[in-house]
Computed example of a mutant assay.
Amino acid sequence: MGTELKNEFGKVGVLFGGRSAEREVSLMSGKGVLEALRSKGIDAHPFDPAERSLAELATEKFDRVFIALHGSYGEDGTLQGALEQLGIPYTGPGVMASAIAMDKVMTKRVCLSQGVPTPKFVALDAKATSSQRLKEVAAELGLPLMLKAPHEGSTIGIARVESEADLQAGFDLCAKYDDVVLAEQFVKGRELTVPVLGSGRDARALPVVEIRAPQGNYDYEHKYFSDDTQYLCPAPLEEALAKRVQALAVEAFKAIGCTGWSRVDFMVRESDNEPFMLEINTSPGMTGHSLVPMSAKATGTAYEDLCVEILRAAKLELKPAAVK
């Protein structure tokens, strides 16, 4: 099997680390993916874009790459564009879908246009929003509300605002990370996530994972390092609700043009079990606490086999033009 996979994939680069605020998580994801691929006999090599020029991707003569980068310069379409130029097939969504998904505001707009519900929101200028405007938004969306840096992930640049007195501090925190601050209606209820694999008609949702963090605080520490957070997979949901959330995940995945794999996050409102899509992650974590491997495991798919499946779907979005 090892020789077969080595011949099938050739020389593989695992891209991890990078320059975003999520570098630490990406290093953990990439290490896991690299070890998994090598355990299958695949000729896999580490590549950190923060330490090496992207020009070296061409000189390394990789036949394909596994993107285990998170956040800016890896998950936002910029790297995908460079790989298209270099003609190196890569895992996950292409340039457009990656760029849209990296912007939580644009993701909401696109998904709403396709009938995927998302919490009410207002996009605010990080440098030109007055305290009066913040109060108006709070009155419009209600308290508590969420403030987010829409181009970050891993719960970086996010604040839950409980009272009007906390508005400015929460806004200032998010404004450190972005030129836009997303003010979002707070949905009280259950936090769910759904991995989606495949493309087009073949896109399929994996089992739903429910996240139960201490005091509902699923922050950076509880997401990646704490053992206090509970993960329930498959989530203990009524079958009809589970299927609805999975269907919405696939719809959101398709709406922004995702291919290969992604993970779609939801809140299900406590009062009426209505699901609301929060965001789409086009290069989800692959650490020991990560949710895509957990969901795949519930179907009998081991971490190593999941990595191989994702790698097998690596491709180029654009067809090379004929040389005249």
Score class of each variant (00 low, 15 high):
204 R>N: 02
214 P>Q: 08
218 Y>C: 04
195 P>S: 04
201 R>N: 13
200 G>M: 12
186 F>V: 07
200 G>E: 09
200 G>F: 05
223 K>F: 11
203 A>K: 04
184 E>T: 08
189 G>T: 12
216 G>N: 08
197 L>K: 01
222 H>I: 07
218 Y>W: 14
185 Q>C: 05
224 Y>E: 07
223 K>G: 05
218 Y>F: 14
190 R>V: 14
190 R>D: 05
190 R>C: 08
205 A>H: 04
188 K>I: 10
189 G>M: 11
191 E>N: 09
188 K>S: 13
219 D>N: 15
187 V>R: 02
208 V>N: 01
224 Y>N: 12
215 Q>L: 14
218 Y>H: 10
199 S>N: 15
204 R>T: 06
199 S>W: 05
225 F>E: 14
204 R>I: 00
221 E>N: 03
193 T>C: 07
206 L>Y: 03
217 N>W: 12
210 E>L: 07
211 I>V: 05
214 P>A: 10
190 R>M: 11
186 F>T: 11
217 N>C: 08
218 Y>M: 10
203 A>F: 06
198 G>H: 06
223 K>M: 13
203 A>V: 14
219 D>T: 07
203 A>P: 08
197 L>S: 02
197 L>V: 11
217 N>M: 15
212 R>I: 15
223 K>P: 04
209 V>H: 00
208 V>G: 03
225 F>Q: 14
210 E>M: 11
204 R>M: 04
187 V>C: 10
221 E>Y: 10
211 I>D: 00
218 Y>V: 05
196 V>F: 00
198 G>R: 03
216 G>W: 02
202 D>R: 14
202 D>F: 09
224 Y>V: 03
182 L>E: 07
206 L>V: 08
202 D>L: 11
189 G>L: 06
198 G>F: 08
210 E>K: 11
216 G>T: 11
186 F>Y: 15
196 V>C: 03
198 G>V: 09
199 S>R: 15
212 R>W: 05
215 Q>I: 13
210 E>F: 07
195 P>W: 00
221 E>P: 00
222 H>N: 15
192 L>I: 14
207 P>A: 07
211 I>R: 01
186 F>P: 01
194 V>Q: 03
220 Y>C: 06
222 H>Q: 15
183 A>L: 09
194 V>P: 00
214 P>L: 06
213 A>G: 07
219 D>R: 04
205 A>V: 10
223 K>D: 10
187 V>S: 09
198 G>N: 07
194 V>W: 01
185 Q>T: 12
203 A>L: 14
209 V>A: 01
205 A>Q: 05
219 D>Q: 03
194 V>N: 02
191 E>F: 04
190 R>L: 12
208 V>C: 05
218 Y>N: 09
214 P>N: 05
205 A>G: 11
215 Q>A: 15
202 D>I: 04
190 R>Q: 13
